[in-house]
Design a protein around this nucleic acid. Structure first.
Lengths: 214, 214, 214, 214
DNA sequence: CATGAATGAGGTTTCATTCAT
DNA sequence: GATGAATGAAACCTCATTCAT
């Protein structure tokens, strides 16, 4: 279903040489984890439920393939990040103007949600429930921050070029991300939600909020 | 059949006749729960941690005052909702125009966050981690929905009066709420965050996003 | 309702000088315990439930009047034994022949059940769940054994007089008691059970089982 | 959706494909439960005691094999019912006349008690302490009722054939069962009790009680 | 006398993880 | 590689009992 093993190998530190999505079992477990997390949430997604959903007879299988809960969650995040990156990048880079890129970013995120609702639900659940504890997971928060920082830089450039009005770009990108994630969360519980329409509305909203004063 | 008190009252002392935050221990436990939830999150906020934080020797004490975990969480939500309602209402009603009320709502929320960061962190944690499970808790989701619905109605009225431009008010109020909650979440981990400044920025942002086209 | 404070004082070792059924609180608690035990069984009859049923605001009241769970149960047993003794004795002694007395004993027990279903249910529950543990409670088992032993002696006398056929009187009295207690247990769950009819049937049954061979 | 085993079996190992007493650990736990219940009673038979008696290091092991307390008790009841059924049926069916079958039933029960005292003690404890609560357990009460109903029918047939005198068969079978269970209960605490002799006495007793009038 | 808060032990259950096979 | 039994910690909750007021 979610495929994407065309990209490079990119090995983990795991014992055997297996790509993240390559080997059957690992990918199968990650896929099951995504489903379960989307359905019952991060904390209720126990190994037992994931194993049952994956058709595995015991949780031992998961522990065999993943060093621990965090390792599995890491696998999920990487899987979804790769998926999202591959989906979003070309859609954004297809546009030139900052305004068009901003719209593409918002609408692209919600188009992606329409296609992979569980994937986005899972990553939002995981990243939203991270606490300082785990060292390996905090890296993802930094990755996420890095993505936002990149968007901030793009906005700053556009502002200097007079393409956006004056505002704190950090507040803006966070508000945008929060609005998108909110749709992701609601879509989890309400399958009738028209996420693409919400995407257009949000794009309109933030277009008005960023448009240079005439 | 037999007995029952002659006074006919038959109260259990900590159920009837006491405000939700009135009785000493109950309030103390709720306060401890707020602190712990803000610190470690909804699911990690075990009775053991809350009891320790409250200076209680055992978790049994919490079960003595609260029927269960959900009951305690309900107590927390009610406490914070009362606090927030009392804080926000006069600040909003001090203004007349929809735009001013919108700004007061956003900045008021973040002023409240500056004064009670843990309270807001706790309620965001709790409401954000609710699943369909508990019947008594879902009521809070409906309460929250009701608040949003009220804001939606106010916006619709303002739009008809030409005071706001044309947009989907549901998407707007949810984006606003998501942006505020996002600040709440970040403030939990970053005590240096200037939430009042963020409030002003968000108020500016959504003012531009709602302003009627000239 | 169950009254019977006309009999002598018969103090317990309890601190204050209170007869078993005299003081209000003690009797009230015992009455509540009888109801609760009859309803939910011996082990589920917690102090909390009994206190609630008695209209008391806390279990501390029970502990204040009774040294412990066993003491309360002792109070229940004594209460019911006194009730049963006062009810049964005259009904049995009104007859002369062993056969008539046997019938009076069986039917009297079930008439008593018809009038005080919860009292009998409670004592059957308590005595049926006794284990060797408690020293003070074992005395009741011995009391019960004593009652059976008395009946055994009466039967033996009657057998020597040729009024009953030859059988092991211990087995007989135990079978009779077991049959009666079984009706008590069923009556607890089935309020429509006609216990007096069952009493007549059981009296007939054991009359045939004891009748001297002609 | 995805995955599921290629074999299509998807068994959990201790749910499907195993007889109730077959798998080693399950049977071992059931056996330990029987011992403990016979010794300390239904309610005092905690997982901790059963685990200790079974040589297990933790109660978690029991929860691993049984879904909960009720599931374990169900296992015990089924185990004993199968044992008793296999023991009693041929002994009863070896006889033709209703009187002989009745005697075989009574004496067979107490012979079985002599051989498996703890098994019968356990099932009497469990069934005697059932309250309306659990849906899966109430089925056993109905099973037991069904057995009695079958005996009632046999008695009715014999009565119509003039082989038994006239009496209420329901009262009779319940009295018989109550007498047998009473011996079971006493045998638990008194290892010196001669249960086979009691069986013969009870068979004599109920033979007289059912014999047709000459 | 009466209250109700506090205690600590004990209950069942779920969890992630390990390990022998 | 794969399995599933075993483990021990931790969770929530109920209980009988004690104690200061």
């Amino acid at each position: 279903m979610q495929a994407r093993n065309s990209s490079g190998k990119q090995k983990t530190g795991h014992e055997a040489g297996s790509s993240f999505t390559g080997t059957g079992r690992r990918a199968q477990i990650v896929a099951a984890a995504i489903d379960v997390i989307a359905e019952v949430g991060y904390h209720q997604a126990s190994f037992a439920k994931i194993a049952a959903h994956a058709g595995l007879s015991s949780t031992g299988m998961i522990s065999y393939h993943f060093k621990g809960r965090d390792d599995l969650m890491r696998g999920v995040v990487i899987e979804v990040m790769q998926l999202a990156g591959g989906y979003m990048r070309p859609r954004i880079e297809a546009h030139e103007s900052p305004a068009a890129r901003l719209r593409a970013s918002i609408e692209g995120n919600l188009d992606l949600l329409a296609e992979y609702p569980k994937h986005l639900a899972a990553i939002v659940e995981i990243l939203g429930n991270l606490r300082g504890g785990d060292p390996g997971m905090v890296a993802f928060l930094e990755t996420t921050e890095g993505i936002l920082a990149f968007q901030v830089e793009q906005i700053r450039t556009a502002q200097r070029a007079g393409e956006f009005c004056d505002f704190d770009p950090w507040v803006m990108v966070r508000a945008i991300r929060a609005a998108i994630d909110d749709v992701v969360r609601r879509a989890t519980h309400d399958p009738d939600l028209d996420v693409r329409a919400a995407g257009r509305e949000l794009a309109d909203l933030f277009e008005r909020a960023t448009k240079r004063t005439s």
